[in-house]
Design a binder for these strands. Structure first.
Lengths: 184, 184
DNA sequence: AATCGACATGTCAATACTGTCATGTCAGTT
DNA sequence: AACTGACATGACAGTATTGACATGTCGATT
């Protein structure tokens, strides 16, 4: 009677709801922004989880391709499960983010060390923010709701997050430099 | 020869670097914003990890209190390890965030369902943003670098993140409503 | 025809983590 | 003196995840 590891299964349902895919293609999706910012998983977790979802009837193999590939699609039950999960109250989701942890721990360091990290964050956030902003701009202006639009909302989300991180790091640098200038 | 589970150990080193604490107090720290936004862990992970850190000489018991409590402090080696971790290049840290995953999966849903979720996000982000903004405002204006200031940078970070989420969700609602108004 | 790289899936042992149960202490109340 | 709730740590079984290894296919070069 397990129903843990819920997040991975729902991530898979979500991806398959947008478009049927093989395990390999799902793995590639996790190697991109989805895995980088929302939920990471390797193929060794994905394949067994797909098998479990198929066993529960939430997905089904709807095609076979070259090199033994199997294309999975969500079943109506799978879509219902996904919907109920996304709509369900947030309560307290699992959170693990090494980058954010680093930011939390910044205060534990020497201000000089913290500044080094902050300057790197400023640079990195500017790059990632610009990349995602470009992604959004290049995407079609209207949201073709439901199909190809997957990732458009997410890209805008990411762009804004990085813009916020960028502003924060600059603010933090100013604060630390000001504190260093006038010793107590 | 393991050196995995790095993040938890560094979170502990960071907390102890700010101030010596017992396992119980560390557990409470994880029950707060640290656990909610950066890295979650329960006492059943924390105690064994503390023992391992002590074995490796990165922390040490520097006091014993009532009810069998042991107060841990970082050793110089522990601080060096922490410093090198925070300063080390980001490469690709572990990321797991159920809330962000939900946002990624929004596009997989009916626009009507997505709107429900987005409106809840607007509300929640406004609340959390306001709470953290208040936390920052109530904190001392200058950063007493190194000691009591822990959490000040982090609180501002969180406040800005939620402000960004708030803006994003409002933007997304407008987009979806506009798309619904003019059917293709 | 051999080679190579991307495609595609899988096993397995080791490690990590969660939830549940268990145990005991101490301070303040009743 | 019994009770209660917060303090404080720990064991353990079940589940999840990772990293290393393994296997084979197909298309395009060489």
């Amino acid at each position: 009677m397990y129903d843990l590891g819920m997040s991975l299964s729902h991530a898979l349902l979500g991806l398959l709801a947008v478009e049927p895919r093989s395990g390999y293609e799902l793995t590639k999706a996790f190697a991109g922004d989805l895995g980088r910012y929302a939920w990471q998983a390797g193929h060794t977790s994905i394949y067994p989880e797909l098998a479990r979802l198929a066993e529960r009837g939430l997905v089904a193999v709807t095609g076979e391709g070259a090199r033994g590939s199997r294309t999975y699609s969500v079943t109506p039950e799978g879509y219902a499960e996904l919907r109920s999960w996304v709509l369900s109250p947030p309560s307290r989701g699992k959170v693990r983010n090494e980058e954010v942890l680093r930011m939390f721990l910044l205060s534990a360091l020497d201000p000089a060390d913290a500044l080094v990290v902050l300057r790197r964050i400023v640079e990195h956030a500017a790059e990632e923010g610009a990349r995602l902003r470009k992604l959004v701009d290049d995407a079609p202006a209207a949201i073709p709701a439901g199909s190809a639009g997957f990732g458009y909302l997410a890209a805008e989300f990411g762009a804004r997050q990085f813009e916020a991180v960028h502003g924060w790091a600059q603010w933090a640098i100013e604060k630390l430099e000001a504190a260093a200038a006038e010793p107590a």
